[in-house]
């Protein structure tokens, strides 16, 4: 008797849970030859709104954790990715049509990239902030603090390494994330969501939506409770309008043109989602 394979239902990742789209919609994901692979959830603007609520709720705990602890939690995610290597490789091969060798290289690079960003968690502040020279009897210190909720349009052509390269840097400083995965290749992003769900990252810190960036991104850009908008993967969208909508609600924007190499590792991506807080403090009496 031949066994009937169990097809997987891909859903969204919001607030640490895997709900279907509120709209009930799905769309078919196919391999390069057009052969059906799976159905992915097609997120609506209400899913995006729910994801922002979840992300906002998680800001306090995640940004309040010590930098060392955040680094440990991020490193743990890399450990969990390592355990899913075969699944990632398989999805990159079937989805993008990569060779075994290229797929393995992409997964390796993704895990290494995650570790690279995790290492910055308790180190970047020393580079960005510091003690300012003043001519008075007090200290003046500048420290980076996280911006808050970052909405991200992930790179559309690099579904795993590209995703890692936009999500990890936003998390380093203590931001929480709502990310719209690659529309055409959403499956590695949802497997990555399963990695997050089984790691130590608190619920709501990362929220993953699949579907049409053209449909969802405007709602995230104009959302008053989103503090940063990463348009790295929005190059093919009308991203100038997104930037204008974001400006109306005081949202920090990273333009596609500023992020030309979407998959290059860069400390700038960490710093992009921080605000500089400068404080003064009296010197103690000698």
């Amino acid at each position: 008797m031949t066994r009937l394979a169990v097809a997987k239902t891909y859903k969204l990742y919001i607030g640490g849970a895997f709900p279907r789209s509120e709209s009930g919609r799905t769309y078919a994901v196919a391999d390069p030859a057009g052969v059906f692979l799976a159905n992915a959830a097609q997120a609506s603007r209400k899913d995006a709104r729910n994801a922002v609520v979840a992300a906002r709720g998680a800001v306090g705990g995640w940004s309040g954790a010590t930098a060392y602890n955040r680094g440990q939690v991020l490193y743990r995610i890399a450990e969990m990715m390592e355990g899913r290597r075969a699944q990632f490789v398989d999805e990159l091969r079937s989805g993008l049509g990569l060779s075994e060798r290229d797929a393995v290289a992409d997964v390796d690079a993704s895990i290494d990239r995650w570790v690279w960003y995790a290492g910055w968690a308790d180190k970047y502040a020393q580079l960005v902030g510091g003690a300012n020279p003043v001519s008075g009897p007090y200290f003046n210190l500048s420290v980076p603090v996280p911006s808050g909720v970052i909405a991200i349009v992930a790179p559309q052509d690099s579904p795993l390494l590209g995703l890692v390269n936009v999500v990890a840097p936003a998390l380093v400083a203590g931001n929480t994330v709502v990310v719209i995965a690659s529309e055409r290749f959403p499956l590695p992003a949802m497997t990555f969501a399963e990695v997050l769900a089984t790691s130590d990252v608190p619920k709501g810190v990362v929220n993953v939506l699949t579907g049409s960036p053209a449909e969802i991104a405007p709602w995230l850009a104009s959302h008053a409770d989103v503090d940063g908008l990463d348009l790295t993967g929005a190059g093919s969208l009308d991203w100038v309008d997104l930037e204008i909508a974001a400006a109306d609600t005081l949202t920090r924007v990273l333009r596609p043109s500023q992020a030309e190499d979407a998959v290059a590792q860069s400390l700038e991506r960490v710093i992009a989602w921080t605000e500089i807080k400068t404080v003064w403090h009296t010197q103690s009496l000698r």
Partner: peptide, 14 residues
């Protein structure tokens, strides 16, 4: 109500 008035989602800061 702010969402209806402005067409964009509001947040607790508002």
């Amino acid at each position: 109500k702010q969402k209806i008035a402005t067409g964009r989602y509001s947040g607790p800061d508002y």
